[in-house]
């Protein structure tokens, strides 16, 4: 049932990439437990604007859990206190009346803050550009049914391909590693005959780019898998390691 709750929000405010940030505290009254977390942020911003203040900048777009844009670190967890959801799918019924909620941006060397709760995740695009594709151009490809693919492989590739590129895995990792993200792409393509052709080369190039961009090493803590809103499995990391080793042996 719908209830109204009052909240204290501790929100990270930072004017620009090079400015010093700080927490600001805001009070919000009568927030419906039926509203989503981002709708609560809308209510906060409406209140800030009406009081003559600058609203809090945060990333969001589809608000249905698929675009990967929303990226809040809520009470110490990426995407907040619910499992298998993005921030936009989190609802206020997960919070109690009178609760204090701490809201921060993703914090990682790979994702510098742009403003308030917005970070720069261009590094993910750069890693994909390093090899996260099959090298085919438009046109001149075989018929879609020319190569049968075992259903289990296609399904497993689909699971890996479910990654939405939000960066929660990096944000939660104590090393700031992007291994889950990279391995999901390497797995997705390596599992399919179309992507297998350049699988080893892809793994090598993507890992090299990841290292170059300042992401940390993987120490198998498994935290990434826990926070992934799409349940991408760390077994993908094992597959990435195999492909990477193959590439190194070929060198």
């Amino acid at each position: 049932m719908e209830n109204n709750i009052s909240l204290t929000l501790k929100v990270w405010r930072q004017n620009g990439p090079k400015e010093k940030g700080r927490f600001e505290t805001y009070k919000l009254e009568k927030v419906s437990t039926d509203s989503s977390f981002l709708e609560m942020m809308d209510i906060l911003n409406e209140q800030l604007i009406n009081d003559g203040n600058e609203p809090v900048a945060f990333d969001h777009d589809c608000r249905e859990g698929i675009c990967g844009m929303c990226s809040l670190y809520i009470n110490g967890r990426p995407h907040g206190p619910d499992d298998d959801v993005t921030t936009c799918q989190l609802h206020m019924r997960k919070f109690k009346d009178g609760e204090t909620i701490t809201i921060e941006p993703w914090r990682s060397a790979g994702f510098p803050v742009i403003k308030d709760l917005i970070v720069n995740r261009n590094a993910f695009d750069t890693i994909i550009a390093a090899g996260g594709y099959t090298s085919v151009s438009t046109g001149g490809v075989p018929d879609a049914n020319a190569i049968p693919i075992p259903k289990v492989d296609a399904d497993e590739a689909m699971d890996a391909a479910s990654c939405i590129g939000c960066g929660a895995c990096v944000a939660t990792c104590k090393n700031g590693s992007a291994m889950l993200f990279v391995s999901a792409k390497v797995s997705h393509l390596a599992l399919l005959p179309q992507g297998k052709v350049e699988a080893a080369r892809r793994a090598k190039n993507m890992v090299a780019k990841m290292d170059e961009l300042g992401f940390g090493n993987c120490t198998n803590t498994g935290a990434c898998e826990v926070e992934c809103p799409k349940g991408v499995s760390i077994s993908n990391i094992a597959r990435l390691n195999r492909e990477f080793l193959k590439a190194k042996l070929q060198d």
Binding site: T134, V141, P142, I149, P150
Partner: peptide, 22 residues
């Protein structure tokens, strides 16, 4: 039809039947 061929070549994991076809 060309679109489906193109997407499969890119590695789009469309749903498949047990025989391996789309």
């Amino acid at each position: 039809n060309d679109i489906i061929d193109q997407c499969v070549a890119q590695g789009v994991p469309f749903a498949r039947e047990y025989g391996g076809l789309l």
